[in-house]
Simulated scan of single mutants.
Amino acid sequence: MADTDRTQSSYVARSSRDGTPETAELVTRLTEQTSRLVRDELMLAKAEMTESAKHGGIGAGMFGTSGLVALYGVAAIIAGAIAALALVLPVWASALIIGAVLLLVAGIVALMGKKPVQQVKATPETTIESVKRDVDEVKEHSHHDNAR
């Protein structure tokens, strides 16, 4: 708060006789405001990308789970084939049924993981829109100031 008061009092001290700020003062204000704007936009981009990465992590975890379950399914099918050679029917038939069920579970988990991965945004859209609005605002004020 004290820093703001000091800055505001320096604005008054550097004003010309008619009460309008001098060029140096306007440049100082522009620099401070631009710096603050860039910091705020970077914070917004960071928050947006963090949220997007979280969704990607969940989807990647589900893909990893589906891979592990698929591995168990393949192991069960292999065990079923081995059992088929060793015994004629009951053991291998049950092993193949279990393997098929495990592969079905793997497919379901993979489909569930697909949706969160597709929701991952590669660009911080909110930040981009905010920056576009900021640029438009600066252009508008620039044209307005030049018209005076």
Score class of each variant (00 low, 15 high):
residue 42 L to A: 07
residue 42 L to S: 05
residue 44 L to D: 04
residue 44 L to M: 13
residue 45 A to G: 15
residue 45 A to R: 09
residue 46 K to G: 08
residue 47 A to Q: 10
residue 47 A to M: 08
residue 48 E to L: 01
residue 49 M to S: 14
residue 49 M to N: 11
residue 49 M to A: 10
residue 50 T to W: 04
residue 52 S to A: 15
residue 52 S to C: 10
residue 54 K to V: 14
residue 54 K to D: 12
residue 54 K to M: 15
residue 55 H to P: 02
residue 56 G to C: 05
residue 57 G to C: 09
residue 57 G to E: 15
residue 57 G to T: 12
residue 57 G to R: 14
residue 57 G to F: 03
residue 58 I to T: 02
residue 58 I to K: 08
residue 58 I to A: 03
residue 60 A to H: 11
residue 60 A to S: 13
residue 60 A to K: 15
residue 60 A to N: 11
residue 61 G to S: 05
residue 62 M to E: 01
residue 62 M to H: 00
residue 62 M to F: 02
residue 63 F to S: 10
residue 64 G to P: 00
residue 68 L to T: 06
residue 69 V to E: 08
residue 69 V to H: 10
residue 70 A to W: 09
residue 70 A to P: 01
residue 71 L to R: 04
residue 71 L to E: 09
residue 72 Y to G: 07
residue 72 Y to R: 05
residue 73 G to W: 00
residue 74 V to T: 04
residue 74 V to N: 00
residue 75 A to I: 14
residue 75 A to V: 12
residue 76 A to P: 10
residue 77 I to D: 09
residue 78 I to Q: 02
residue 79 A to F: 06
residue 81 A to N: 07
residue 81 A to I: 03
residue 83 A to W: 01
residue 83 A to D: 04
residue 84 A to P: 00
residue 85 L to Y: 07
residue 86 A to D: 07
residue 86 A to S: 13
residue 87 L to N: 14
residue 87 L to Y: 12
residue 87 L to R: 14
residue 88 V to F: 10
residue 88 V to E: 09
residue 89 L to F: 14
residue 90 P to G: 06
residue 90 P to L: 13
residue 90 P to V: 11
residue 91 V to M: 13
residue 91 V to Y: 08
residue 91 V to T: 12
residue 93 A to R: 06
residue 93 A to M: 09
residue 93 A to S: 03
residue 93 A to P: 00
residue 94 S to T: 12
residue 95 A to V: 06
residue 95 A to R: 07
residue 95 A to Q: 07
residue 96 L to T: 09
residue 96 L to R: 04
residue 97 I to R: 12
residue 98 I to F: 14
residue 98 I to K: 06
residue 99 G to Q: 03
residue 99 G to S: 06
residue 99 G to P: 07
residue 100 A to T: 14
residue 100 A to D: 08
residue 100 A to Q: 08
residue 101 V to W: 07
residue 102 L to H: 00
residue 102 L to M: 06
residue 102 L to W: 01
residue 102 L to C: 02
residue 104 L to G: 05
residue 105 V to S: 04
residue 105 V to L: 07
residue 106 A to N: 00
residue 106 A to G: 01
residue 106 A to I: 00
residue 107 G to Y: 02
residue 107 G to P: 00
residue 108 I to T: 07
residue 108 I to V: 13
residue 109 V to P: 00
residue 110 A to E: 08
residue 110 A to G: 07
residue 110 A to W: 01
residue 111 L to Y: 01
residue 111 L to M: 11
residue 112 M to E: 03
residue 114 K to L: 15
residue 115 K to Q: 14
residue 115 K to V: 15
residue 115 K to P: 01
residue 116 P to N: 12
residue 117 V to T: 14
residue 117 V to G: 02
residue 118 Q to S: 12
residue 118 Q to H: 10
residue 119 Q to G: 04
residue 120 V to F: 05
residue 120 V to D: 00
residue 122 A to F: 08
residue 122 A to P: 04
residue 122 A to S: 10
residue 123 T to L: 09
residue 123 T to R: 15
residue 124 P to Q: 02
residue 125 E to A: 11
residue 126 T to Y: 00
residue 126 T to W: 00
residue 127 T to Q: 11
residue 127 T to H: 06
residue 128 I to A: 11
residue 128 I to R: 03
residue 129 E to K: 14
residue 131 V to N: 05
residue 131 V to A: 07
residue 131 V to H: 04
residue 132 K to P: 01
residue 135 V to I: 15
residue 135 V to T: 15
residue 136 D to W: 03
residue 137 E to W: 11
residue 138 V to Q: 09
residue 139 K to L: 10
residue 140 E to Q: 12
residue 140 E to W: 12
residue 141 H to Y: 08
residue 142 S to W: 10
